[in-house]
């Protein structure tokens, strides 16, 4: 297994894990378990799309963690973040975080792989081990649920995302 080859994906794995489980430490636990499992299982990887393979390893670790209740099924995003530059941004982000927490773990995985990691439906299908049709239906349900949540905030007047 090649250190440098995997290392370039650690930032991606961390970003995805943070969005998936919310809490910074729980997210890094997930990444660490994923990297350790990847080392043990590396003989199963066929040269090809290493990123998709690492995400499939992370998916398996995540599912096991959910089963053993090491992480709660709904994400709790409560950390402070820097970089809020425009007035609308903080409320948008808070809505986003609450909305993500409302999704099922399965919906969150698909949504984040597509919208945050820019993976194709095919890559997501391989990473999660489910048919493409399932990926697409989970994605559309996730988007709809999230959008409904974000639209439903009574105090909000402007839904446009300010860059």
């Amino acid at each position: 297994m090649d250190y440098e080859q995997v290392v370039v994906y650690i930032p991606n794995l961390r970003r995805y894990a943070r969005a998936l489980v919310g809490d910074r430490h729980a997210a890094d636990d997930l990444v660490q378990d994923t990297l350790e499992r990847a080392v043990r299982k590396f003989h199963l990887w066929r040269p090809g799309d290493l990123r998709a393979w690492l995400f499939s390893v992370m998916h398996n670790v995540f599912v096991n963690q959910l089963k053993s209740r090491r992480i709660p099924p709904s994400a709790e995003l409560d950390e402070n973040f820097a970089g809020a530059t425009t007035p609308g941004w903080v409320t948008d982000v808070r809505d986003l975080e609450r909305g993500l927490a409302l999704l099922s773990a399965e919906q969150r995985e698909v949504l984040l792989m597509v919208s945050l990691e820019d993976m194709t439906y095919e890559q997501v299908s391989r990473a999660l081990g489910v048919p493409m049709g399932t990926v697409m239906s989970r994605l559309s349900r996730a988007r709809e649920k999230l959008r409904r949540h974000m639209d439903g905030e009574p105090e909000r007047t402007d839904l446009k995302v300010v860059k």
Partner: peptide, 30 residues
């Protein structure tokens, strides 16, 4: 875009020591 705005900063955070794979062990496993 909102997801990227919110979570892209994670990409540039320093990687915690526990995730910086111990190279010799890593290569040994490999």
């Amino acid at each position: 875009r909102l997801l990227h705005d919110r979570f892209d900063p994670v990409l540039v955070e320093p990687i915690p020591a526990r995730l910086q794979m111990r190279r010799p062990a890593w290569i040994g496993h490999a």
